[in-house]
């Protein structure tokens, strides 16, 4: 009996707070959303076991409540209004999750990679190296120097700048242009 009364009091309090929030009372709105938060977390976590996904759904519900707060009719009960939005957003999230997982496969180790040396034959690796060496040789001298120092020798931009006497920004531009030119060159060959 006491529990029922408490629920009725809570329902009445939320109805009044929502009405005030619709009229622009930010304090009432903050209080309402803060009071709703544990209730929403409890409802969502009962249906979604992943805590991160559950918290994302709770945030979606809060955003939806905010977006359609004008649809609440203060002469009607508050909880059915809130629960309809909550259940709809949980269903939407479940649909989104299932369509996302339909396009993804969880594996521990990828069975094959195209860039991994261990999955390639020796001949493939040497062919790749030859193609890349040729693409580098076609670059203008400034870009070639930049890409050799930064990408092949693995120097930092600061170290490459000290070695060449050029500024860091000009080296970054040279590397960027070199990569673009090589990609263009390699795509043409493929």
């Amino acid at each position: 009996m006491r529990k029922l009364n408490r629920q009725q009091d809570r329902e009445e309090s939320w109805r009044i707070l929502m009405r005030a929030a619709q009229d622009g009372d930010r304090t009432a709105y903050t209080r309402l959303l803060s009071e709703l938060l544990p209730v929403l977390r409890q409802i969502v976590r009962r249906r979604c076991r992943n805590p991160q996904d559950a918290e994302d759904i709770v945030q979606e519900v809060l955003l939806s409540v905010h977006a359609v707060r004008h649809t609440y009719d203060p002469t009607r009960a508050f909880m059915p209004w809130l629960m309809t939005i909550t259940m709809r957003r949980i269903t939407d999230a479940a649909r989104k999750l299932s369509s996302r997982s339909a396009n993804e496969t969880t594996v521990d180790v990828l069975p094959e990679t195209f860039s991994g040396h261990e999955t390639k034959k020796e001949q493939d690796t040497s062919d790749d190296n030859e193609v890349i060496r040729r693409a580098i040789s076609l670059l203008p001298p400034g870009q070639r120097q930049a890409i050799v120092l930064v990408k092949l020798r693995g120097l930092s931009f600061q170290e490459a700048a000290t070695a060449t006497g050029k500024s860091i920004s000009s080296l970054k531009v040279a590397v960027h242009r070199a990569v673009k030119a090589m990609r263009r060159n390699l795509n043409r060959k493929i």
């Binding site: 929030a21 622009g24 930010r26 903050t30 959303l33 709770v58 809060l62 004008h70 009719d73």
Partner: peptide
């Protein structure tokens, strides 16, 4: 964004709204 921060942001955005006319 933390949910508590989201609530603060939503409350800051809580301008008065025109209630939807009844069906």
């Amino acid at each position: 964004m933390q949910t508590e921060d989201l609530i603060r942001a939503l409350a800051a955005d809580a301008t008065p709204v025109k209630r939807l006319v009844r069906p």
